[in-house]
Design a protein around this nucleic acid. Structure first.
Lengths: 183, 183
DNA sequence: ATTATATAAGTAAGTACTCACACAAATATC
DNA sequence: GATATTTGTGTGAGTACTTACTTATATAAT
């Protein structure tokens, strides 16, 4: 088994990761067999285990990529000093979620895995929570911490609808939120 | 295979249903085998198929029970005429969610299944949505429909946290919401 | 005497994973 | 610079085990 360095990666390695992401997001982790992933990627099943060690190792590789993507996404919010922009950017985040097909699959997997494996990534969100709490404090909100939690929970709910309810219209909700927070 | 009438049900049938609910909620539907359910319920595996036809039939029986539970829970809100009480009762709903162990498992399964099988139960919530929309309208809110959607999404987000984040404190959020809507 | 309840012991198909073996590219030795 | 040696990439057929589901058979209730 090989350590994945992210920079050196064979074509087939990438194909496996991409296929696994797609299938895990569509069918779920437990319901997707390694043989299905191999067939979809057009490689032998053994290659998955050569590169990722186990089925769980394959999932971990996908989730690790995800963490870096999330960090990148949060960075522009966390380093923002204008409190109104912090809130506005947080709200806008949800819009970018469904823009690309790959991005949508990625976030859907994150949520699906959260329910399937029961490992809620509290710490990943902590930086964002602090930024929001700080922003609400600057703007003179009474309970900035709860206000921040509340907005993040709302974003969670919105993302859930976006992933599971095809007919769901996000735009009206985003406009509603912007007006509510005056950003 | 037998039609489940809900009123006539053997002890073993109930044990199967109860065990399946517990295991599906804990491990997920795909990750729970029928043999696991049988062992947990203390019956032979064949009995599951005699009574429920298939693994999916077993799930359907649980979900059907769930629909009736949900209807009962929503009834006291839908038939409420005081708009402030409609909102208050909707918010309070989340508190009752985690009260009993069985109730918690039941709602956890509902959410888990929603992510695992991709069948979002829009219509189940429609009556509640209309009641809320009507309440917000009576109270003079500008966009009562969006306001109702927003509250329901918030409730979704809260339920998610409650199910997945053990450390999560609901009470402060409920107090916050009550103050926010002045109910 | 019929019907419903229950089981134990099957079934074929799938599961995650291993292993022997082939080939290609990089590295070391002469 | 040619040759030997290691290393990484890839496969296909296999492993033991689990999966959802069936069937023959026995017992209990009506």
């Amino acid at each position: 088994m090989q350590v994945i360095t992210h920079f050196i990666m064979t074509e087939k390695q990438e194909k496996i990761l991409h296929s696994a992401l797609e299938l895990f997001a569509k069918e779920g982790y437990s319901a997707t067999s390694t043989s299905k992933v191999a067939k979809h990627a057009g490689v032998s099943e053994g290659l998955i285990f050569r590169h990722f060690g186990s089925k769980e190792g394959l999932l971990d590789a996908i989730l690790k990529e995800g963490e870096e993507k999330a960090k990148l996404l949060f960075a522009s919010i966390v380093f923002e000093t204008n409190p109104q922009l912090v809130i506005a950017k947080t709200i806008d985040m949800i819009e970018s979620l469904g823009k690309s097909k790959e991005g949508f699959e990625f976030w859907k997997l994150q949520y699906k895995i959260k329910w399937e494996t029961e490992k809620y990534s509290e710490q990943k969100m902590e930086a964002l929570h602090m930024s929001l709490s700080n922003a609400f404090n600057k703007l003179g909100y009474e309970t900035p911490d709860i206000e921040a939690t509340f907005l993040l929970i709302t974003m969670d709910g919105l993302a859930t609808r976006l992933c599971l309810q095809e007919s769901f219209q996000v735009e009206p909700m985003i406009i509603f939120l912007r007006r509510k927070y005056k950003v």
